[in-house]
Simulated assay, not measured.
Amino acid sequence: MTWKKANIIIDGRKMEVPAPDIISASRSTDIPAFYADWFFHRIETGYSVWNNPFNGKKNYISYRNTRFIVFWSKNPKPLLPYLPILKERGIGCYIQFTLNDYEEDGLETGVPSLTERIETFRTLSDILGKEAVIWRFDPLILTDNISVDTLIEKIERVGTEIHNCTEKLVFSFADIDSYRKVKANMTDSGIP
Rank of each mutant, 00 (worst) to 15 (best):
Tyr60Phe: 15
Glu16Pro: 12
Leu128Asp: 08
Arg89Ser: 05
Met1Ala: 04
Ile43Asn: 04
Asn55Ser: 05
Leu79Tyr: 01
Leu86Cys: 06
Trp50Met: 12
Asp138Tyr: 05
Thr123Leu: 06
Arg27Trp: 09
Ser73Gln: 12
Pro76Tyr: 03
Val133Lys: 02
Phe97Glu: 00
Tyr63Ala: 10
Gly46Phe: 00
Arg13Ile: 12
His163Gln: 11
Gly159Met: 04
Trp50Ile: 11
Ala19Cys: 03
Ile146Gln: 02
Leu124Phe: 08
Glu167Cys: 13
Lys74Met: 03
Tyr102Cys: 15
Glu104Trp: 03
Glu116Met: 04
Pro139Ala: 05
Gly46Lys: 13
Thr123Arg: 14
Ala174Lys: 08
Gly46Tyr: 04
Ile141Tyr: 10
Thr45Val: 09
Asn65Val: 00
Leu169Ser: 10
Lys183His: 09
Ser172Cys: 07
Lys77Pro: 07
Pro20Trp: 13
Arg122Cys: 09
Gly129Trp: 07
Asp144Met: 07
Val49Asp: 14
Ile95Val: 03
Glu104Ala: 10
Ser24His: 10
Leu140Asp: 15
Thr150His: 09
Ser24Ile: 13
Thr166Gln: 03
Phe68His: 11
Leu169Ile: 15
Leu107Phe: 02
Ala174Gln: 13
Asn145Glu: 01
Cys165Pro: 03
Val170Arg: 10
Glu153Thr: 01
Phe71Trp: 05
Gln96Glu: 15
Phe39Glu: 08
Val158His: 11
Val133Leu: 04
Leu107Val: 05
Ile43Arg: 04
Arg64Ala: 02
Val182Cys: 13
Gly12Met: 10
Leu86Phe: 01
Ser73Asp: 00
Ser125Gly: 15
Lys130Leu: 07
Ile61Leu: 12
Pro53Cys: 11
Ser24Ala: 02
Gln96Pro: 13
Ile162Ser: 07
Ile85Asp: 03
Ala25Asn: 06
Tyr35Gln: 07
Ile31Cys: 10
Glu116Gly: 08
Thr66Ser: 01
Gly106Asn: 04
Ile69Ala: 09
Ala6Ile: 02
Leu79Gly: 02
Phe54Pro: 14
Asp101Lys: 11
Ile127Cys: 01
Ser62Lys: 14
Cys93Lys: 01
Pro76Ala: 03
Ser28Asp: 11
Ile9Tyr: 00
Lys181Val: 13
Lys74Ser: 07
Lys14Glu: 15
Lys87Phe: 04
Tyr35Arg: 12
Ala184Val: 06
Phe40Asn: 06
Glu104Ile: 01
Gly129Thr: 06
Ile61Thr: 06
Lys183Val: 06
Arg157Trp: 01
Ile85Leu: 14
Arg117Phe: 14
Ile8Phe: 02
Glu156Lys: 12
Pro139Glu: 13
Ser147His: 03
Tyr63Ile: 03
Leu114His: 02
Pro53Gly: 00
Glu108Ala: 05
